[in-house]
Each structure stands twice: as structure tokens, then as C-alpha cells.
Design a protein around this nucleic acid. Structure first.
Length: 542
RNA sequence: GCGCCCAUAGCUCAAUUGGAUAGAGCAACGGACUUCUAAUCCGUAGGUUGCAGGUUCAAUUCCUGCUGGGCGCGCCA
């Protein structure tokens, strides 16, 4: 970013002096091999507004840019690209900066909320939740890194109909322990993990609930089950290093009166009507192509959409500048009605945002593993973490674009043979750590190394280093965690190649050793920060 | 039928949101450890970027229409 910015500023200055106007948005990029260190498309982009050919614009610019001592070479190429070769001094400066400290520009200072996972406590987290947890956590870390204040929130319901079913199901499992058989209801949870909870209840409370069922017992089994499952969920999340700042209960929206307040606001603004004994929210009044939705059923029970509306109001009143809902692709149909609710409540555009991610499919060898919470046939997130480790779990979820379906081969992931890109990156870090240790043992101090002469491979490495903050800003902007993984991999790749070709610590060649060590140290710093945003450890040795 | 997402090497994925010659890993083949960690490196081979148009100096990227796959279209979440 230092080098690109420097070039950009110089171009803008020359451009406006020569053409008496500022250039349109243009880019500085690292071109393919043999086109110099950096290149720009400024001449081609501005051909239209200057009503001249790109080549003549480029030639004029090059004439004056050539005079700048920071550039070793400036030339026009192809249809009007301008290619730059930089003076070695600039490279030395960049290494010095990253050697001292890896700084991420603080470009924003908004208060942002990410709400994700938000699984109701009716079963252990699945692999799909894992993907969501990692996407949410990394986007949170990224936003914090660029200066935003972030709240990670988990929204849950522990008092609804599902929870009743859950309690009933645990009670059936509990009775089974005593040889009493009851049929599962249609919406009950047949899942076997409830047996563990049933056993625990049996151990603690004996047989006092066998064959008896009433409201009190219902509520006891429900709250015992959900509390236990929530314990599992929190344990899994903490194992994954996904720290939530707040767990938000749906019920509080009712007890605090916010649901009623939201209803009144919508009613006053004319978005509420009654039909067939139910209360409706007029989605179509905001988005004509959408259908209206029930928020209070005939029997007086609210739908989830009702509390979701109140929840949005709650988020808005808490003073967030923007909120993000991270949802699985199956929820996309829910977006329009939420958008409508946001508008109907008078919440400004841009506040409500959704990040969708596609599904995770589990594959075991050639066999597709079905996932169903109700039927208990699934590999839990916990299982996956135990099998492949936290670092690999995080990295694997992070490295895929949220927009693409992720096929996770369980057998492959469990196998120790698996070629794991996370190791590749960590290995680069460990190698550098080992170099530094080596240097310390040989008492080679490199803090003051000047990097007067810098080779082609080293310049490649430095340019990759200098991409770091651009990558971060890009990932934040596009909400794509995988950008970080791609970058970490690519930086590691360049380092490994460099390492193989160059002897870093060489007491016979102190001058060169110092330069190389300093460069490696800078690489290590950047790797460390990148890995820390991904949430993966940067080991000193492997 | 309508809506959202995806399609790039045999497989899993990149490609600096429109840039020059589309890149890695795995799988295949051939090389490099008496030398700082071989969990590494170097080389060979592998492509009509699903198809057809369009936009412009320039398209894997943007637009339109197809084809194929995933998901959704409940007073379920």
C-alpha cells in the first residue's frame, strides 16, 4: 500500500499539472512478469474525458514522471499501460516499516453488529453452523482491525414450541431408561443426543418423572434440556475461538414490551391489518411484488417474524450504524420481508444488511452424509474440530467464498495425510522463527540492516508484503474472509521459494545475512497479523 | 412458474470487482536434502473460463437469453 500510494500520488500530481484536471479513478497494480514493478491504467481510463488516445496521454505522463529519482524506469507499453520500476531505496523503506510494525489503516469508526450462528438450543451445532461462525468471526475481526466497533451477537429462542417438543422428547428418552415406551410426536426430536441428557436427569433425580407428565414436568424437561444443550454450544464456540459479546433472548422482546411497541409503530404508519382472525404486516405496501405476512396467528400466538421485527427495532435503538445478519442460503426468501419491515419502521437504508452463505455438504468417501437435526444423523461441529483441529477447521471454513457450496470430505479431513494449506502457511512462519533463533545464537543483529542492494526475488517478496493492507481493506469491503487465506498462502509461497534459493543466515556474509533476516522478519510480522485475523495460530516451531 | 447463488485444468479452488501471457494445490511424470525445518523447492504435462449474443481500447469479471446444479417460494425457523 505504501508503494502503490506513493506512485498514485505522483501520477495525480503530474496528471493535473499537464492536463489541468484530475484523473478519473484509476488503479496501480502489480503487473504480470516482465512488465515492471507496478503498472497503471490511468492513460486508458482518461482517454475518453481528454478526447485523446491513451498512448499520447501515456507518453506525456511518462516524459515528466521519468524525471523523478524514485523511479528507475518509466515506460509506455501495450495499449497504453504505464510501467514503473522503482528505486531500491523505496523497497528498503517498505521493509523498514513492516519490520517495525504492521499497521492497518483505520478507515472507519462505525458501530457495527454481526449477528450469526443464532441456533436455537435444541441440538449441538452442525458443520453448517461452523461455517457461519467462522465467517462471522473473521468479518468481525476484520472490521475491528480497520477501526470499527463490533458487537458479535447470538440470537436465540428458548421458550417456543420447538423447545416444548425438545422437552417432551427428552422425557420420552428418560422413560425409555426405565423401560417405559411412548411414541414420539411428529415434531419431536428423535435425536440420540437427548439420551445423554435423559441419563443425567435420571442420575440426579431418579425415577420421579417416570410415567407422569404435566405442565410443570414439561417445563422442567424443557429448561433442563436447553440449558444443557446451550452449555454444549458455548463450549464448542469457545473451542473454535469464536467469542460472542452478547447472547440475546427472543423472549425479552416480549417481556420488555418492545413487540407491542413495534406493532403500534407499524399500525400508526398503516402497515397493519386484520384478516381471517389473524394480524398481518403489509409487506406489499413497501415491496409490491411481495406477499403480506401474518405476525399474530388466529390463536393469538405470535409468529417468529413478529419478534424479528421487534428485534430489528431493538438493534436500531441500540445505536448501531449498520447491522449484519449472517444467514444460510435457505433463508434468502426472508430478506424482502425484513427489508420491508425495516422501511416500515422508518429505519434508514443501509442499516439492515444480510450476508448469505451457501451450504456445507459433508462427504465421507463417496457417500454424502445427510444432516438432519430432528433425526440426529449428523456430524457435529464438535466432532469435526476434534478430528481435524481448531486451526484446520477455521482455515478451511475461511478459505472458501461464502457464495459457493462447500463440500467437506470427512474422511479426507480426518486423515493425517491431508494436504493442508494451513500447515503450509504455518510452516512458513515456523521456518522464519527458526531463522531468527539461529541468528540470535550466532549473535547476528540485523535491526540496522540497510538493504542497499535488493535482488529481484526480494523485490517480489516486498511487493507482496506491501499488498497486505490492500487485502484487508478489500476483504472488509467485499465481506470475503477467503481473501486473507489466499494472501497468506501467496505470501508463504513467495517466502518458501526465496528460502530455498537463498542462504539467509550466513556468518561468512554478514552484510547480506542482515538484509535477508530483516526482510524475513518483516514477512513474519505480516504473516502473524494475517493469521491472527483468520484466528489461526502462528507457531514458532512445527 | 417466480426469486437468490453457483458453473474456470481430471478433482478442490485462485485471478488485485474491467487490464497485458487465466494461476496454485491434489492426482500423473521427472529432478533437488553431508548445507538455516524436504510439512519445502524446481521442472514437464494439463484450458474454446457451461453455451450463444451484446457493451469497449480491453470481458473469467458487466448486460440479455439459454443449459445444468444447489436453495427458497408456510399462520416452520
Amino acid at each position: 500500500m505504501y508503494l502503490k500510494n506513493l506512485i498514485k500520488e505522483k501520477i495525480i500530481k503530474e496528471f493535473s499539472e499537464i492536463f489541468n484536471t484530475n484523473p478519473p479513478d484509476f488503479v496501480i497494480e502489480i503487473p504480470p512478469q516482465n512488465f515492471g514493478d507496478y503498472s497503471t491504467n490511468v492513460a486508458m481510463i482518461s482517454a475518453k474525458i481528454l478526447k485523446t488516445s491513451p498512448l499520447s496521454i501515456a507518453k506525456k505522463l511518462v516524459e515528466s514522471l521519468k524525471e523523478d529519482p524514485d523511479f528507475k524506469k518509466v515506460e509506455v507499453a501495450g495499449p497504453g499501460f504505464i510501467n514503473f520500476e522503482l528505486s531500491p531505496v523505496l523497497y528498503a523503506n517498505v521493509v523498514e516499516k513492516y519490520f517495525r510494525k504492521v499497521e492497518i489503516p483505520k478507515v472507519s469508526s462505525e458501530k457495527i453488529q454481526f449477528e450469526f450462528v443464532s441456533a436455537n438450543p435444541t441440538g449441538p451445532l452442525t458443520v453448517g453452523h461452523g461455517r457461519q461462525a467462522i465467517i462471522g468471526d473473521i468479518l468481525s475481526r476484520l472490521n475491528e482491525a480497520v477501526g470499527n466497533k463490533v458487537v458479535r451477537e447470538y440470537y436465540f429462542n428458548d421458550a417456543g414450541r420447538q423447545v416444548k417438543m425438545l422437552g417432551h422428547s427428552t422425557w420420552i428418552r428418560y422413560n425409555e431408561l426405565y423401560g417405559k415406551h411412548f411414541e414420539f410426536g411428529e415434531d419431536d426430536y428423535v435425536a440420540t443426543y437427548l439420551i445423554d441428557i435423559a441419563k443425567e436427569i435420571s442420575e440426579k433425580y431418579g425415577d420421579r418423572y417416570v410415567n407422569v407428565w404435566n405442565d410443570e414436568i414439561q417445563s422442567f424437561f424443557s429448561s433442563y434440556s436447553t440449558a444443557k444443550i446451550f452449555e454444549w454450544i458455548k463450549k464448542t464456540l469457545s473451542k473454535l475461538n469464536v467469542p460472542f459479546d452478547s447472547y440475546f433472548s427472543e423472549q425479552t422482546l416480549y417481556t420488555s414490551g418492545l413487540t407491542n411497541e413495534a406493532l403500534e409503530i407499524l399500525r400508526n404508519r398503516g402497515y397493519i391489518y386484520e384478516k381471517d382472525g389473524s394480524v398481518w404486516f403489509a409487506v406489499s405496501k413497501v415491496l409490491p411484488s411481495e406477499e403480506d405476512r401474518v405476525i399474530i396467528r388466529k390463536n393469538g400466538d405470535p409468529t417468529y417474524f413478529f419478534s424479528d421485527i421487534a428485534y430489528m427495532l431493538n438493534k436500531y435503538r441500540r445505536g448501531f450504524d449498520r447491522v449484519y445478519y449472517i444467514w444460510g442460503a435457505d433463508h434468502h426468501g426472508y430478506i424482502p420481508r425484513m427489508e420491508a419491515a425495516s422501511k416500515a419502521l422508518g429505519i434508514p437504508d443501509g442499516f439492515f444488511n444480510v450476508i448469505l452463505h451457501q451450504f456445507v455438504t459433508l462427504k465421507s468417501g463417496e457417500e454424502i452424509v445427510r444432516m438432519s437435526k430432528r433425526h440426529g444423523e449428523f456430524v457435529t461441529l464438535e466432532d469435526l474440530i476434534d478430528a481435524v483441529g481448531v486451526d484446520a477447521t477455521r482455515y478451511f471454513f475461511a478459505m472458501m467464498d461464502p457464495d459457493t457450496t462447500l463440500v467437506f470430505d470427512v474422511e479426507l479431513a480426518k486423515s493425517k495425510k491431508m494436504d493442508n494449506p494451513v500447515y503450509y502457511v504455518q510452516y512458513a512462519h515456523a521456518r522464519i522463527s527458526s531463522l531468527l533463533k539461529n541468528a540470535t545464537e550466532k549473535k547476528i543483529a540485523f535491526e540496522d540492516a540497510s538493504l542497499n542492494s535488493i535482488s529481484k526475488e526480494e523485490r517480489d517478496l516486498v511487493r507482496e508484503l506491501d499488498e497486505f493492507s490492500d487485502v484487508v481493506l478489500n476483504a472488509v469491503d467485499q465481506k470475503k474472509p477467503q481473501k486473507l487465506c489466499n494472501y497468506a498462502y501467496s505470501l508463504s509461497e513467495k517466502f518458501h521459494a526465496y528460502y530455498t534459493d537463498h542462504r539467509i543466515v550466513d556468518p561468512e556474509n554478514l552484510e547480506i545475512s542482515r538484509d535477508r533476516l530483516k526482510l524475513c522478519f518483516a514477512v513474519k510480522n505480516v504473516l502473524e497479523v494475517t493469521l491472527s485475523i483468520i484466528g489461526v495460530s502462528a507457531p514458532e516451531e512445527m
